[in-house]
Computed example of a mutant assay.
Amino acid sequence: MQVWTVSNQKGGVGKTTTVVTLAGLLVKRGYRVLAVDTDPQASLGYYLGVDPDELPGSLFDLFRGHDRLDLAQVESVIVPTGTPQLDLLPASTALATLDRTLGTQDGMGLILKRVLAMVAHRYDAVLIDCPPVLGVLMINALAACDRIVVPVQTEFLALKGLDRMVRTLDMVGRSKGIRYPFTIVPTMFDKRTRASLQALTALTQKYPRELWHSVIPVDTRFRDASQAHLPPSHFDAGARGVQAYDQLLDALLDPQGGAHV
Rank of each mutant, 00 (worst) to 15 (best):
V3K: 15
D219S: 00
S58E: 01
H234Q: 14
R209M: 05
G107F: 07
I216W: 02
L89E: 09
R209H: 13
L98N: 07
M138H: 00
T81I: 05
T193I: 05
T21P: 11
T81P: 10
P80R: 13
D170H: 12
Q198E: 15
T154E: 02
P232F: 01
Q205I: 02
D236Q: 11
V74L: 06
Q105N: 12
L44E: 01
Q2A: 14
L169H: 02
S233N: 09
V185N: 02
L248F: 01
L110M: 13
D224R: 14
L44F: 06
S196E: 09
V115L: 03
A199D: 05
L55A: 00
S92T: 15
S58L: 01
P231Y: 10
Y180H: 12
V172N: 01
G161R: 13
S196H: 05
P84S: 15
T17C: 13
P231F: 05
A120T: 13
W4S: 13
P80V: 04
R221L: 04
G14C: 09
G30L: 04
L89D: 00
D39L: 00
G258M: 06
G14I: 12
V6W: 00
G57E: 11
R174A: 15
Q243Y: 09
K191R: 15
D39P: 06
A225W: 08
R194D: 05
Y46V: 15
T16H: 10
G11F: 13
A72C: 05
P208S: 10
G241E: 02
T168Y: 08
F63G: 09
N8G: 08
V6R: 07
G161N: 09
R221C: 00
K10D: 11
G45Q: 00
A117H: 13
A23Y: 10
L102T: 12
H121C: 02
L69W: 01
D236W: 07
S76L: 04
A239M: 10
V3N: 05
L211M: 11
L89H: 10
Y47E: 07
V215A: 03
T201V: 03
V6M: 01
L248G: 05
L211D: 00
G82M: 04
A120M: 01
L252I: 07
P232W: 02
L253T: 10
L159N: 09
F189T: 00
Y31T: 06
G109C: 07
Y245C: 03
R68C: 00
L142R: 12
T187K: 02
T168Q: 13
V215R: 00
R174T: 13
L157G: 12
E155H: 15
W212D: 09
L157Y: 14
Q198A: 14
I184L: 12
A117D: 15
L134S: 14
G30E: 07
T193Q: 03
F60G: 02
P40Q: 12
R68D: 13
R68S: 14
G173S: 05
T204H: 04
G49F: 04
R64E: 14
L134Q: 13
R167S: 14
G82A: 12
K10R: 15
V126S: 10
S175M: 12
V150P: 06
A195Y: 06
L253C: 01
A42L: 01
I128F: 08
K206V: 09
